[in-house]
Design a binder for these strands. Structure first.
Lengths: 181, 181
DNA sequence: ACCTGAACACCGTTCAAGT
DNA sequence: ACCTGAACACCGTTCAAGT
């Protein structure tokens, strides 16, 4: 039975989740799938395009409205937290999402919802794109910092102050305060 | 006359500034310096350590207090802007600084001043490390987004909304508002 | 349509041996 | 002290040729 693009993305997500981006090579993927490297290029144009699919898959489980929120501000905070929760357990997920977002912004739906919710919460349309970026940089930075910290700990080095859930929630609150919503 | 570590860092900064991180390889550097690859490893432990030096050099021109600022808040905003201005013209500088900051936070002095100025401006010590991260993620995200935009334009693709100086200043203001300083 | 085999043009790092 | 030469173990991508 022929290999599918789905299977290639599956394998890529698996390697990323288990070993990180440094180990996610086309050749490693080919080995994992018992196929020659060249075969992958029939299913994906190149590695970057594959990573866009990987990022989309990582965010695939993030729903638009997990539950009816009390306030529009809570809806924004809740989506930001859902995105962070989806990325947190996957090493280097922030880098992958950043790359995907640069190459194909429309492919990452939950990130576009962020802007819509911000506008619904009262952010002016001229500022909502900037506000989305502000929030997204905080989410991705928070995920990356936490992962760097745990990998340094694994090597026995100190990792600076804790940048876990508390810092994340505080940062989201600070940004939303600054936006006046 | 023998090669020096300074010259290796110089060459690395040059290649980064002119061609970007993708072209900054140890072998490319060796070619540029008319030397064999192995020679570089007498002067630097590995590529990552070299990139920490590159990042420190990029931020080396950022002074602690460019001028007496009217308010502590202005001092923070002014340092943030100076950091951004130093990084903006160098492709992939945000990635390099992020890497360096993860590996050797103390090596990047201007980034540590950020926290001090935030405390002087009234941010509580328990929050100043988080606040510094918030601001730094905005600076680096803003630099990266602007550079991605211009490289997409060079390839003839649309790059989304403008994320230049206006967006940067607005973001800094929003964060400082959120901090209540 | 889908894959193999093989090549092209690269990487970072190490290290005996030379000067 | 400082560098060369050469190797080791990798990369992403392409493409004729096979089935």
């Amino acid at each position: 039975m022929a290999l599918t693009r789905e299977q290639v993305v599956d394998a890529a997500v698996g390697v990323l989740a288990d070993f990180g981006l440094a180990d996610l090579s086309m050749r490693r993927l080919a080995r994992e799938l018992d196929v020659q490297v060249g075969a992958l290029y029939w299913h994906v144009k190149n590695k970057q395009e594959l990573l866009v699919d990987v990022a989309a898959r990582l965010l695939g489980g993030v729903g638009r409205l997990p539950e009816a929120e009390a306030t529009p501000r809570d809806a924004v905070a809740s989506l930001a937290t859902a995105i962070r929760t989806a990325l947190a357990p996957v090493p280097d997920s922030a880098e992958v999402v950043q790359l995907a977002q640069t190459m194909q912004p429309a492919a990452l739906e939950p990130l576009t919802w962020l802007r819509e919710l911000l506008e619904e919460a009262g952010v002016a349309p001229q500022h909502s794109a900037w506000a989305r970026h502000l929030l997204l940089n905080h989410i991705l930075g928070s995920v990356a910092a936490q992962q760097d910290r745990s990998s340094l700990e694994a090597v026995g080095e100190a990792g600076g102050p804790d940048l876990g859930e508390d810092a994340f929630a505080w940062g989201v609150g600070t940004i939303l305060d600054g936006l006046g919503i």
